[in-house]
Simulated assay, not measured.
Amino acid sequence: MSNNTPRVALVTGGTGGIGEAVVDALVADGFAVGVHYAGNKAKADALVEKITTAGGQAVAVGGDVADEHAMAAAFDTVRTAFGGIDVVINTAGIMVLGPIADYDLDQFDQIVRTNLRGAFVVSQLAARHVRDGGAIINFSTSVTRTQLPKYGPYVATKAAVEGLTLILARELRGRDITVNAVAPGPTATPLFFDSNNEQTIAALTNVTPLERLGRPEEIATTVAQLAGPARWVNGQTVFVNGGLA
């Protein structure tokens, strides 16, 4: 790449609360960005239009993260548009809470498909296509430490994502590619508010020493560091949670 060619990132779940904040942070750092969406094409297109109008470079790509063919096409679209991919950030995920004893198995299959198979598919494609010197960032959760009731299925998928992420970091030895997982604490996103009742939201708002929810842009700041200058952080799970645990 010449000095005039931007680094290129693909952000899955780019229309979500954290995903959109990540897209904004990367664009501010000069990245060309592939904004992935699962269902909200209109929002992805609007985000791309906002970026390009402001002089940035972006393209919208759709598809189920667990569908290897759809995601291969998404990777190809970004590579065709910008010449390659340097960073892949997988924020896509779903969260449906419930006690293990009563959890619907069809719902369990769905959460495993999106959160775990999706992370595997995206990680596999990233391992094949990210250029040397790049970065791969998956998403876990701080509830792997706090072990809150009703988060069992969600945490099971995210603990598995951590495991495959840290092994991938070792498998990519020799390519100068960092692979890390980011584990947010309670963050003010639509996913968080839609998945918790008012009592739980109030409790989680006050549980950190900072006595508030995290903001999506605060998660994105850490992601941008891992995508850019933080080259000596590799094979780690980085907890971004205001001191939760």
Rank of each mutant, 00 (worst) to 15 (best):
A202N: 01
I177F: 03
D29G: 05
G133T: 09
N90G: 03
V223A: 07
D76H: 14
L116P: 01
A227V: 06
T157W: 00
G134K: 03
L168D: 08
A28H: 07
T5C: 04
R7C: 03
V182S: 05
M71R: 04
Q110S: 11
A127G: 15
K41D: 14
V240S: 03
A66T: 14
I100M: 08
R131I: 08
R131G: 09
A21F: 13
G84D: 13
A44R: 10
L105I: 11
D109G: 09
L125C: 05
I177E: 03
V130W: 01
I100A: 11
A72W: 01
P153I: 04
N241R: 00
S140T: 13
A44Q: 09
E49H: 13
A38Y: 08
E20S: 14
P149Y: 07
V238N: 03
F108E: 02
T205W: 07
G98W: 02
T15C: 04
A28D: 13
L244A: 05
V223G: 13
A101V: 12
V8Y: 00
R170V: 12
A127K: 10
Q236D: 03
R128T: 11
A54C: 10
R170I: 12
F82R: 02
V223W: 13
T221P: 00
G62C: 05
A58L: 10
T5L: 06
T80I: 02
Q147N: 15
N138E: 05
Q107S: 10
A21K: 10
A127I: 07
A181E: 06
G62D: 06
K43T: 10
G19S: 09
A25N: 06
T146W: 03
D104N: 15
T80Y: 06
Q199K: 07
G242P: 11
V233W: 01
E217H: 11
V161W: 02
T15L: 12
K43H: 07
G133S: 05
T53E: 13
L166E: 08
N4T: 15
R170C: 09
G55F: 09
N206F: 00
V122H: 05
V112F: 12
R215I: 01
D102Q: 13
S2E: 10
D45E: 15
E162D: 15
F239D: 04
A224N: 08
N206E: 13
L226R: 09
Y154M: 09
D194H: 02
A127N: 07
G242R: 07
A81F: 04
L125E: 06
N196G: 08
A230H: 01
T237F: 09
I100R: 00
G118L: 07
N115P: 02
V238I: 15
G14N: 12
D132Q: 13
E218W: 01
V161S: 07
I51N: 14
T221G: 15
T5D: 14
R128Q: 15
L168M: 10
L148D: 11
A220W: 12
N138L: 08
F193M: 03
G163S: 15
D76Q: 15
L210D: 01
F192P: 02
D45N: 08
A81R: 14
A81T: 14
A32E: 08
Y37F: 14
S140Y: 00
Y103S: 05
R113K: 12
T165V: 12
V233G: 04
M71L: 10
F192H: 14
A135Q: 01
A46E: 13
D64Y: 10
R231Q: 11
R79K: 10
